[in-house]
């Protein structure tokens, strides 16, 4: 489904990686590995179209993502280092807006259910400013529950999460893969999904 061929990426004058080839099909879990500064985040940002690849092509279902444009964005969800949530709003409002922007038609019942599944029961209507870092990350991750996009691109999804939440993430990723989803992610923490063989992509 997602095919990457001869991809090279540079930041300023510095070439991060080149000749990268891989593909991802339904049910695949791919972990991008590499030291700090090896271009993990740049690779994910290039997949999202924020950065232009120096050379090479990214294809989704056989078509170049540059030509697909919005049609590709409708089938992917990206979670970056930043949580993309507003301190001034409460968890429910934040989730409602981000789901709305992504084009998911959901009602408040589903929103609350998603927040509760992420372990935020009783904190749905608290302003995000009073939540801890880990709880904010959970609010951001709740978007994954509402989205129907098959491709998940997760940059360090486990940052600031406690053991319980890491287990929950493993569960969520497992469910997504069973539903023919695809996940590409970076992490410095071990992440084991039951019944799925993780593929590795090493950037040097």
């Amino acid at each position: 489904m997602l095919e990457i061929s001869n991809l090279a990426c540079s930041r300023g004058d510095h070439l991060l990686f080149s000749d990268l080839n891989f593909s991802l099909s339904a049910g695949d879990l791919l972990q991008v590995q590499g030291a700090n500064g090896s271009g993990k985040t740049s690779l994910l940002r290039t997949l999202c179209g924020f950065m232009m690849p120096a050379t090479g092509e990214i294809r989704w279902c056989g078509q170049n993502v540059r030509e697909l444009g919005d049609a590709f964005y409708a089938e992917m969800i990206y979670l970056g280092h930043l949580n993309a949530i507003k301190d001034e709003l409460n968890a429910l409002e934040n989730l409602r807006i981000s789901a709305g922007l992504a084009g998911c038609k959901v009602d408040d019942r589903q929103l609350i259910a998603a927040l509760r599944r992420m372990g935020l029961r009783g904190r749905e209507t608290l302003p995000v400013k009073v939540l801890s870092q880990g709880q904010r990350r959970r609010v951001a991750l709740a978007r994954l529950l509402l989205s129907k996009a098959p491709l998940w691109i997760l940059d360090e999804p486990l940052t600031a999460l406690d053991v319980g939440a890491v287990g929950l993430m493993q569960e969520l990723i497992g469910e997504h893969l069973v539903n023919n989803g695809m996940v590409i992610y970076t992490t410095h923490q071990p992440l084991e999904v039951v019944g799925v063989a993780t593929r590795w992509l090493a950037l040097s």
Binding site: F50, M76, L82, A84, I85, L101, A102
Partner: peptide, 14 residues
């Protein structure tokens, strides 16, 4: 600064 703009650029709409 909080990453919302990134998400806005991924909105499947103009």
């Amino acid at each position: 600064l909080d990453g919302t703009l990134e998400q806005m650029m991924l909105v499947p709409q103009s």
